[in-house]
Each structure stands twice: as C-alpha cells, then as structure tokens.
Design a binder for these strands. Sequence first.
DNA 1: CTGGAGGATCTTTTT
DNA 2: GATCCTCCAG
Length: 696
Amino acid sequence: MTIKPIDLDDFDDDAPRPVKPGSLSARALAQGEPAYLKGLNAEQRAAVETTDGPLLVLAGAGTGKTRVLTTRLAHILATGKAWPGQILAVTFTNKAAREMKDRIGALIGGVVEGMTWLGTFHAIGVKILRNHAELAGLRSGFSILDTDDQIRLLKQLLEAHDIDEKRWPARQLASLIDGWKNRGLTPEKIPAGEAHGFANGLGGKLYAEYQQRLKVVNAADFGDLLLEVLRIFQEHPDVLKEYQRRFKYMLVDKYQDTNVAQYLWLRLLAQGHRNICCVGDDDQSIYGWRGAEVDNILRFEKDFPGAKVIRLERNYRSTPDILGAASGLIAKNESRLGKTLRTDREESEPVTVRSHWDGDEEARTIGDDIESFQRKGDRLNDMAILVRASFQMRSFEDRFITLGVPYRVVGGPRFYERAEIRDALAYLKIIASPDNDLAFERIINTPKRGIGDTSVKRMHGHARSQGISLYRAAEALSLTDELPNKTRAALRALMDSFSRWRQSMDGLPHTELAEIVLDESGYTAMWQNDKSPEAEGRLENLKELVRSMGEFENLLGFLEHISLVMDVEQSPDDDKVNIMTLHAAKGLEFGTVFLPGWEEGLFPHQRALDEKGRAGLEEERRLAYVGITRAKRRAFISFAQNRRVHNLWQSALPSRFIDELPESHVEVAPMSTSYGGYGLGSYGKSRFEEQSFTNT
DNA sequence: CTGGAGGATCTTTTT
DNA sequence: GATCCTCCAG
C-alpha cells in the first residue's frame, strides 16, 4: 500500500480520515489488533498508543526506542489520525531520518510517500526558510555556508577591523556566534556582558556585521537555519499559525540533544495541536558543548502541562554485567531523572579492565583480541573500538594495517570537507549560482593561474563600490585595462570558461558537466602533476565525487543535499572492525566493544573539566555510560600508563570512572607481562593509582 | 605572482 | 608530527 501524498495547502482539520475501506490498516483495525503492535511490551505499547497530548518517553539505552518511534508513526498513519504531510518528525541525523522512513514503510507495507516533514532540524529549517526567505532578508535561492566558509567570512571581517587574528582567532568568534545562535539569540538580544567578551568589546558588533554580510551574499550558516526560522515564527504570527495548524502530530527523537533554539521552535509549534511526543534519555546527553540542554528534558513536564511520562526500562541489548557496570557508573551523576534498566538475560561475562604500559601495547592487545575473536567466528563488523578523541585512532589504524585486519573509521575525516572536494564543489556552485562570492574566491586562483591577492582585492573593491557580486566584478574587470595584461588574460579565460560551462548545463548530464569542468579548468591536471603522496588519493576522491553525483537527478538537487549532509554513506557490507569516537557511536550497538584510553585528562577530558566543572564531569560520565551500553556481550575497558601526546611522553593516572565501576560486574585482567609483569591483585578502590608510574 | 623555507600552534566531541 | 601561516627571494 502506498500512502498518498497530501496537497500541502490542505489544512482542513475536518477532512475525512484517510483510511479507505479495504486498505491494510482498516482491515487490521477491524481485526482488533494491528500486526505492528505485536511483540511490544506494555510500556512500549503505551508509548505507541498514547497519541494525543504531550508525551515524554524516557527510553534507556537498548530499550527498543527506534522501534517505538517508528511504530508510533505507523500507528498514527494507519489509524488515519493524520496524513503523512501533517506529521513533523525530527531526528538528529539524516541517516536516522532515512532509516525511519524505511522502517515505517516496512511496518505498514509499501512505501510511505509525502512524509515531507521527516528530517533533521536543519533540513526542516531549510525547507521552511526557503518558503519564507524574504522574511529573513534572504532570497529563496540562498546558499548554505559550512563551518569553513563561515570562518573565511569572519576572517575577512576581522581583517577589515584591523583585529589581530592571532589574539582573536576567527574560530573563536565563530563558536561564540554559534553559541548565541544555539541559544536563539539574535545580535540585538545578546546579554550586554557577553557581547563584550571578544576583541575588546567588539564581539556583539562583529556578530551583527556578520549577519549583515550573510544577507548581502545571500547566505545562511548552519545556525541560521534554526535561528532565522525561530525569528520568523516569533515575528510573524500568521506564518507560525500556518505551521501550527499543519503539524497535527509532532515527534522528536534524541530530545536530550536539543538546544535552546530548537526547544523554542518546538514549543511554539506545539501550541497548535499539542500532540508532541519527545523521546530521549537524559543519561545519554553528550552534546552539551554544542549547546544541547539536558534541562530541556528535565523540565518537560513543567513546559507541557498535563504531560505524560513513560519510561522504557527493559533492555534488550546487553548482558546483566554490562548493564550493571553502566548503571553503577551513571548512578554517580546527580542531575538525572533516574531509570533502572533491567534485562532478562542470564548468560553474562564481566566487563574486563586492563592496564597497559603504553598506548602501543594497548593497541597490540586489542588487535590480538580481535584476531582471536575472529578466529572463533565473530564478525569484524560486530566489533568496535570507541575512543574519546580522534587522535587515539591512529595507533589502532597502524596496528590493523600491520596485522592486515580490515577496518573502517566511522565519521572520520569527512568526505565533503576535504580540500579537493570543496574546490570541485566551488566550481559547480558557481555554475549553479554565479553570485556565490565565497565559492568564487576559493577557486579564482586554484589551480594557480596568476591571479594573486592584489587582483582579488581590486575585484572586491569594485564589487563593493558597484554593489555587485565578485563574479560580476571579475567579469567587468576582465574587459577593462585596470589589471595587468597577464592577469587580465587569465581572468578572461576563466570567465569565458564559466559562461561556456553554464551554457552546457542544460544540455549535458550533470556528471558529465562535472568531468568537463574539472578537466578544462586544469584542476585535475593540478593534482596529476602533484607528486606528493596524497595526490593520488585526492584524484580518487574526485572520481568518487562524480560517481556520487550520479545518484541525484540534477546539479541543484545534488548541491542542496550536500550542503546539509556532510558525509557519504559507507557501505556496511564489508566485514570490517569499526573505529569511531564515543560521540559517533551513540545509537549503535556491537557484540564486542573496546574502550581504550580511560585515563585522567583524556577521559574525562581535561578541557571538559576546566571549562564546565562538575557539569562537564557529568557529561563525560554520560559519555562513558554511552560507551559501555553499546556492548551486547563483551566490553573491554583499558588505560595506558604512558601515552604520547604531541610527540611528548606523558604518564597518566587511570580514569576515576574505572574506580567508579561496581566491583561485582568487573574483572581486572592481569597486566601484560611484556614489560616485566606488574600483576594486579584483587580489585579495590584506587587500586590503579598505587600502580601508576612516574614519567620516563 | 609563485614557491619554498621556517615558524607557530595544535588535538574533544559535529548537525 | 602535521598542518597552516608568514615571510622572503626569484
């Protein structure tokens, strides 16, 4: 069965319910109990069937949250309570959104069409903002800046103000502005004290100017996708009303990760039909540094009077020992709602804690374990190494290369952030919209064609005085004699190429166009002539880029997609060990999980402690909790007494989290004998601190 | 304007 | 150890 898409302008609340006699759902209802409800436990079922009114589902790790979410949506659709287009469903990643769509389809049979409002906050934000761009001072075709563009723009701003970038890095300003945007603060609303925190009091002013610059170049950054929509909702009640009316049911996944701006958004929208269901786990809130507010979940009942709260506490993933270790650890946190996970499983082995002399030994041991598990028949796919910081990954990669064990780095260096990809995209973006100044500036002299800084400055000046884009200014200057002959000729050639490429845009498949552009611009040749070791990989990436474009209908569709989805999917088919950060591991599960690097200063990370104090420590502890609860059968925690950081050897103490693990669920492995064997006796408090060594 | 040498700074996590 | 930036000679 296919659910028909609804006309977006059809807001008639009294429209007949979209269940047709004879359709699958109607049949299922007639038989009393639809198949999709089978196999749910009592709480899960309640979470699915409590469709009306505000609802908070506190879903512990591994309690079948995704299943509840998708079943709930399927239930709303199948019972005819709403059309697909009347449901707002927010997820945190694009991947989660797609999976949810697929799973709903599987539940009610067939493909779900018309679920236009299922996506990430940002994806939904763009959609709304494109519809009302003029209310935010933008034109509908506005471009979306990523962090890199954002920083380059801010750099220009700092330069214009003669601010020393050494003392006041653009990065810092960017995160300051991001922080404000995450809290829903437009420039005029930032608290007086905070506005003065940067560059001798210029912080607030720079923020305001940055926002103006964005409008001039017709662009929005990531934060704007939330903030500008929020502003529109606040300042234009008619628009807000339209959306309040449209969204009969609202569903929010990972509620513990929402920031203030997102929260304000949701609260405004939920005042319409008041059917808002938030699903989350306060114990898994690990994005505080990005502006997420655990408070949002802690105060849900106050914010939405009459809200029901359902706890999912039955865990279907892990063994009693793993749950016991994780629960014992998280119990040390003070600010939490409190949940008790339980499982029916009996078979269990304790969580192993191991001490190592240094990081290399740690990597060797884990590598050996993985090989031996593999020999016993475990799949590499079902094993993961979860690290606190990405620099830890290297030693494992090195080790796996030596051993010949295939591995994949999840969420590693992102495909679309690589320089060569960004360059190639810049060319394509300019073809799609020539007035994208940042893109144009990026490639005007890449590959080198003799157009240097001075010439670019001149173009900038011309653009500003004439109130035109950089591209138009370049076009103009390529026809006059203001530039040196050589430069002018080079610019001429470039501009001619662009107009030629744009003309062929309609006639050619976009993948072919991309190949032509990369070829004729000399970009491919640039890397072919480059003899550095990574040049080959870059050429590979460019090919991959063209290949991935093929999945989209046209150039515009592709560009819109990648501005929101910064990564390409990796195929999970090959059997490989997973290496990723703890943050990236949220929501995943593995039979065997390795948790290396549990050392004071690294985990909990020193910076988290310095910057956020006790709150920071609690967030780190939640991160540890997330790590342990990823494991289904086995978890190995380890620490090294010596670790190389920035090429310096540092000795470290075992993480306090190790001491906090409940003894009854933990087994301390004897220390490896390769360095003389300092065996550990029975487990006890501060056991490892006595074992620590001074610097070498 | 280009390219290379030398220097500073870094590494938490990312939609 | 790597990358990014600045400075200087051609």
